[in-house]
C-alpha cells in the first residue's frame, strides 16, 4: 500500500510541476469554463422568464452548477491528454518499468487532475460570486455540491485514462472529449428538465448526469433533491470507470 502511495504522490508531484511550468497546458482548461460561464450565465439569463422555469436561485447559480461540473469532467479529460502525451514521449513506459505498484500510476494522475481542477474551481467560484451568484444552500449543501464535482472530476479522469492507455496517442483526444461533451450536453443544460421536449427530453430523463446536475442545483439553491440517487450514480460511475482505467493500464502493460 505504501509503495502505491509513494508512486502516486511522486507522479502527482511531477504532473503538477509540469503543469505550472507550461501555461499552455493550464490556461485553456481554465479559460474554457470561464468563457462558458460568461456566455451561458450572461447571454441566456432571459431564459428564466420562460414559463415553467422553476429554479429559484437565479440563472447565474443555475448555470454555475453546470459549468462547475463541466469543468470538473473536462479537468479530468485534459489530464487524460497528459497521459497520452506521456505514452507518446516514452515517459509512461519508463513509469511502467520503474513503478513497483502500477496502480499507483493511475492514482498519481488522479491526484494531479484533482489539484488542477481545484484551482479552476476556486477561480470559477470567485468569478461567479463577483457576477452576483446567489447561494441559497448552507455549508453542508455546498459540501455536497463540491463533493459531487470532485467525484465527477475523477470519473472524467478515469474515463480519459482508460482511453489514453488503450490508444497511447494524443490522437485519441477527440475520443476522450466527445463522449463527455455529449453526455454533459444531453442533460438539462440551459433549462430545467421539464422544459425540455422531444428526443432530448427522452434522452435527458435517462442520462445519469441529469440527476447529478439536478442534485447540484438543488444544493446551491438550498433545496437538496435526489441526493442519495445522485451520489449513488456518481459513485457507480466512479467504480465502472476505475475498472475501465485499470483494464486500460493492463492493455498498456501488455502492449509493452
Amino acid at each position: 500500500m505504501r509503495r502505491t502511495t509513494d508512486v502516486a504522490l511522486g507522479l502527482a508531484h511531477r504532473q503538477v510541476t509540469v503543469l505550472f511550468k507550461n501555461p499552455s497546458l493550464f490556461i485553456p482548461p481554465m479559460l474554457f469554463p470561464l468563457m462558458n460561464f460568461m456566455a451561458f450565465a450572461g447571454g441566456l439569463s432571459r431564459l428564466r422568464h420562460v414559463p415553467g422555469f422553476d429554479f429559484h436561485g437565479g440563472y447565474t447559480a443555475f448555470q454555475f452548477v453546470f459549468v462547475l461540473l463541466q469543468s470538473a469532467a473536462f479537468g479530468g479529460v485534459f489530464a487524460g491528454f497528459g497521459i497520452a502525451r506521456d505514452f507518446e514521449r516514452g515517459f509512461a513506459r519508463r513509469l511502467l518499468v520503474s513503478a513497483p505498484q502500477r496502480s499507483g500510476i493511475i492514482a498519481g494522475y488522479a491526484i494531479a487532475a484533482l489539484v488542477r481542477w481545484a484551482m479552476i474551481a476556486v477561480v470559477l467560484t470567485c468569478v461567479a460570486l463577483v457576477a452576483g451568484m446567489k447561494i441559497g444552500g448552507n455549508g453542508v449543501d455546498l459540501f455536497g455540491l463540491y463533493g459531487l464535482a470532485i467525484i465527477f472530476n475523477q470519473v472524467g479522469l478515469l474515463w480519459a485514462a482508460g482511453v489514453a492507455m488503450r490508444f497511447r496517442s494524443v490522437q485519441a483526444g477527440p475520443l476522450m472529449q466527445t463522449p463527455v461533451f455529449m453526455a454533459l450536453f444531453l442533460a438539462p443544460v440551459y433549462v430545467p428538465l421539464d422544459l425540455l421536449s422531444g428526443w432530448i427530453h427522452a434522452v435527458a430523463r435517462l442520462n445519469p448526469l441529469t440527476f447529478i446536475l439536478e442534485a447540484g442545483r438543488g444544493f446551491i439553491q438550498g433545496e437538496p433533491t435526489q441526493v442519495a440517487l445522485a451520489f449513488g450514480l456518481a459513485v457507480a460511475l466512479l467504480v465502472i470507470f476505475a475498472v475501465w482505467a485499470r483494464t486500460g493500464l493492463r492493455a498498456a502493460e501488455n502492449a509493452g
Partner: peptide, 16 residues
Amino acid sequence: MLMAVNSNGLRAATHL
C-alpha cells in the same frame, strides 16, 4: 453535434 443538442436544449427560448 452542438446544433443537435442546442437546437433541442434551447427550444424553450422560442417561448420568450
